[in-house]
Design a protein around this nucleic acid. Sequence first.
DNA 1: CCTTTAGATTTACACGCGTAAATAAATTAT
DNA 2: ATAATTTATTTACGCGTGTAAATCTAAAGG
Lengths: 342, 342
Amino acid sequence: MGRKINTMEEFASVSGISRPTLSKFFNDAQSVKKSTRLKIEQAIEKYDYRPNFYAMNQNRRKTKNIGLVVPNLTDPFFAGIARKLEELIVLSGYNPLLLSSHGGPELEVANLDSLRSIKPAGVLLAPLGRASNVKKLKDFSQLVPTVLFDANVDGVGEAFFGSDNHQSIGLMVDYLARTGEPPKFFEMKDPINPNAYKRRAAYISAMEKLGLEPELLQVNGDGWNFEEIGFTSGRQIFQNSTHRRATILCSNDRLAIGLMSAAYESGLKVGHGAEFDLRIAGHDDHPFSRYTCPSLTTISQDYDAIGERSVSEMLKIIDGANGITERTEKLFEGRLVMRSSA
Amino acid sequence: MGRKINTMEEFASVSGISRPTLSKFFNDAQSVKKSTRLKIEQAIEKYDYRPNFYAMNQNRRKTKNIGLVVPNLTDPFFAGIARKLEELIVLSGYNPLLLSSHGGPELEVANLDSLRSIKPAGVLLAPLGRASNVKKLKDFSQLVPTVLFDANVDGVGEAFFGSDNHQSIGLMVDYLARTGEPPKFFEMKDPINPNAYKRRAAYISAMEKLGLEPELLQVNGDGWNFEEIGFTSGRQIFQNSTHRRATILCSNDRLAIGLMSAAYESGLKVGHGAEFDLRIAGHDDHPFSRYTCPSLTTISQDYDAIGERSVSEMLKIIDGANGITERTEKLFEGRLVMRSSA
DNA sequence: CCTTTAGATTTACACGCGTAAATAAATTAT
DNA sequence: ATAATTTATTTACGCGTGTAAATCTAAAGG
């Protein structure tokens, strides 16, 4: 086995491959002939060599790092997406760098800042939305290729992929109206997420299309602790008996989870059918929505599609002989998940 | 404002500070005199300079990076801990690098591998536990300072900080036995998490201490989808009516969440008091356990203490003039959180 | 005031790899 | 087989910083 190989120079001499060729290989394994590739791979196996990460990236025109910024990793929804994206990035031969903004715009900016110093090939960003420091985001996206997902911010990044809230909320309203009381819409008065505004608008338009009167249940509260907000304001709402026998569509599953908890405490039975007091539905198909009591009827976002499209677009931009292209935007349709709560 | 400053050399000439001094400053701001520190900080502000990350780390004996590896970021419990630790690491002047093993031992090894190439000052590792490739972990921990948290693996790392399962489960068993039917213990037959074994043993010993007969409800299933396992095996259990009017202590909250969902579907009312069919308790104070229906009685681990201690021990090791010290282990006590389910 | 000393500067080299240009070797096409 | 083409090698320099040693400067102490 011999001594430990520490530099590419040493590795070149023991493997019998010249250093520049090795350098090419480590930048892109496909760029060398198959026979030499195999020889190199065997030598790597044998000597357990890997190039110095820092020296390697110092003079590269483009690193192989892709930043991945989500608004809040504590939210299992984003954790799931992040996982999916990480997987796709690794499969493409890049290495992901996961950062969470923990709900704070300062941290979002700080994350982009620390990413800048890492000179990433590109960044996949799910922005905080309304809370975001738009100017800083825009500045950043001019310096490094940026693709937005989940939430859109006008003029930031070269592409956006997200869910078609209009379609999905329309679908849900339609379903709820066909199967019982038409839904009221439960949301925060000043939501942080731009999707929330789209969903509100989609709800109103869907109701009007059906000739029904929209009714918004707007509650106070800020921050990202949606369950708590749903719970506390739900308790207040349910003291008022006018909302019994109602159908409530929540702007997202986390609000719905809090609301269901409040309904339970208020002695209201949630579910669809004659023997229940209340129907509650959500949006996002949160990992836990399957296990609420009762299980939550919701909308599943097509995050496989969003993830794949985001990453493939990113790679296209990185390889980019494209020059100045239009900012692409695409919305993917959601799927109705009928469970017990509505 | 002038042109953009790109190198430390340029920054040295415009700031009037010599390059070696700047280098010292960027390595440790406290290592230069206060007056020069202020001058440098003003210049940084003015010229928006920051050193090249890669060039900077290439020749440093120790980088300022600390790896942070958790078994599964999709689990909000670990997401929360990771967040806490990230915060502490940043506060200490280091930058965290968060990696998730997504429940897989291969990925755990891969994570450590990619950390190795980054030459971190240290690594905080919550190992998968039984599934872990112990040899690789041990090899790794010999190369880079490693502190374990959450789950212990014999002989790996220079310290371990976790929860005192014996104490916490004892506390819970005591509480449950005093207030109703003595608890049965619900768990996976072959759990992946080493804590699960400790909790099982703790349950048995706590029951025996009270002169009660331990009863284990061991269910099949593997992987990390605890809610699903709790749910499907819960359904089977509740078809059998012998478990009605029982008290069930779950090995962790996620199993409990699944189990409560199964109880709900089976028409069993969970809660403490005469009018309820079943009591269910968990362990961990999972972020969602507050919002289950009914809210879940559980044990809250002292993760503030665990986090702070893990990071401070890490820093001590990094600064380390310590030489060969004993492997430190410390368990922190859990707190009983009495809610509605038991 | 001089001495001591912590801290800054000057100088110079090292780090491990990227990359370019010229050349040589291997492969493929004719 | 020879020419054309692709791929690898040789050589050499550059990247932006860390760091060591010697020297100089300024603050602190008496």
